[in-house]
Amino acid sequence: MKVTIKRWNAVAAWRWDMPEDDVCGICRNPYDSTCSKCKYPGDQCPLLMGDCNHSFHMHCIYAWVQQEASQERCPMCRQGM
């Protein structure tokens, strides 16, 4: 018998390449979720990693940085972004 696979419809899940169960330090949502303003994760709500290797939802860190009190520092380690 010769078996030919004509079409294979598979299912896969994507994850951010981050330690599992880790959350955004600002909104406390998992990285695989969205920031509090977005509807769709992934392309529309990407992550951003600072020089200090701390990661956040891009929208979260932008909002943070725009606050004067933040002094454009990482909210986790206080290093400059």
């Binding site: 004509k6 419809n9 896969a12 769709y40």
Partner: peptide
């Protein structure tokens, strides 16, 4: 390749 692979890519957190 005689076969075609299609995938449903899920945002696993929400499924």
């Amino acid at each position: 390749l005689g076969s075609e692979l299609n995938a449903q890519i899920l945002s696993s957190y929400f499924w």
